[in-house]
Design a protein around this nucleic acid. Structure first.
Lengths: 188, 188
DNA sequence: TATTTTTTTTCACAAATGGTAAAAAATGAC
DNA sequence: GTCATTTTTTACCATTTGTGAAAAAAAATA
């Protein structure tokens, strides 16, 4: 928990009072491997600061699975659309490993943000970063073909390869498992 | 200019002092049709509040053009990555029509955000919205094929169709102009 | 109106990816 | 270690999209 506060403070400096209030609002929440953090139609009511574990955020379209993103330790998980609008989500989130998180409710975050300018700024920073990552992903999906996206993933997220199935990776790249296998087979 | 302040205040309520400071920091900037707001290697130093006109933000990959987004009146244009990090952009922004904007420098925004909690919150809201739109786009690019993306565009952004070329639309959908023409020909 | 430029369509062929299902390999449970 | 389950590969054929270039249409300019 201290590490989480520390890394948040590192993202955007928090004053002492803010840090204390923030800490008091955090609650431990643990998910065993295979359990769902979110299912379709549920409303996402929290930010989850991941201390340990792995979460897959995905959706279905015609029985095909599409992975929006993987979240690992030291990342922040939420489903932004459902969270911000407090409306039912169209995504599913599952713990691919036993996962330890500290959570904040939207209500607490709203109040903390109102009370502490420094917390408002912290969350603004969090949104900024999420936005930048998503914009990169859009460009990548448009500019690169599946093979290039696969190789980029293996290059930049090697540590994740041992923790997810190729099926999930295919879902992240946006192709079928068969196509991914074919790409992997082209050893050139 | 008043309309811009009004619509921002509408997005997230600003107190009087913040509104005055914000107004004083705004500067008119006009781009004639065909002129560039941003070219590769330039650093994006502003937020542009578009009063009138149309901006295309795009990139090149192997001589192919990919459109990140179109910005029209009442939208806010910036290149987030370059703007936030103050680093050279990999995108190009061109005015597809004569375009009237009011601009804020990053420096002014940073200072205003530090001084006024309500302005910090306003920009947080702006980032939130941008993030939500990008997340939708990622899901759409993965889940829908080119034909579905084209039909969705014609449905939801009919007003833009008269203002952009099919080449630019193809670049937005992520396919070649030839492929788009073929999709349009399938009148079924 | 005639001319030039830009935009859009069309076409034939190549390449990439999808759909499906079965086989092979790896992993996990007992 | 054996068996059952899950994951991964393979293969065949269908569909989509890309390439490149030329023709047609539309728009801009003289």
């Amino acid at each position: 928990m201290e590490e989480i506060i520390k890394s948040l403070n590192n993202l955007s400096t928090l004053d002492d009072k803010a840090r204390i209030d923030l800490k008091n609002a955090l609650h431990l929440k643990v998910f065993t491997k295979g359990s769902f953090i979110l299912k379709e139609e549920m409303i996402c009511r929290h930010f989850y600061f991941i201390q340990q574990g792995l979460i897959k955020l995905y959706s279905f379209k015609d029985d095909k699975e599409f992975v929006q993103k993987f979240f690992v330790e030291n990342m922040i998980f939420t489903e932004p659309n459902s969270y911000l609008k407090q409306r039912p989500t169209i995504y599913i989130a599952i713990a691919l490993e036993d996962t330890i998180t500290y959570t904040l409710t939207k209500n607490d975050i709203d109040n903390l943000s109102k009370k502490h300018h420094s917390i408002e700024r912290l969350f603004s920073k969090i949104y900024q970063q999420a936005m930048l990552e998503m914009m990169d992903r859009i460009s990548e999906m448009m500019e690169e073909d599946a093979s290039a996206r696969y190789h980029k993933f293996t290059r930049e997220r090697h540590y994740l390869l041992q923790r997810i199935t190729l099926g999930d990776l295919a879902g992240y790249i946006g192709i079928t498992q068969g196509s991914l296998s074919r790409i992997r087979a082209q050893k050139l």
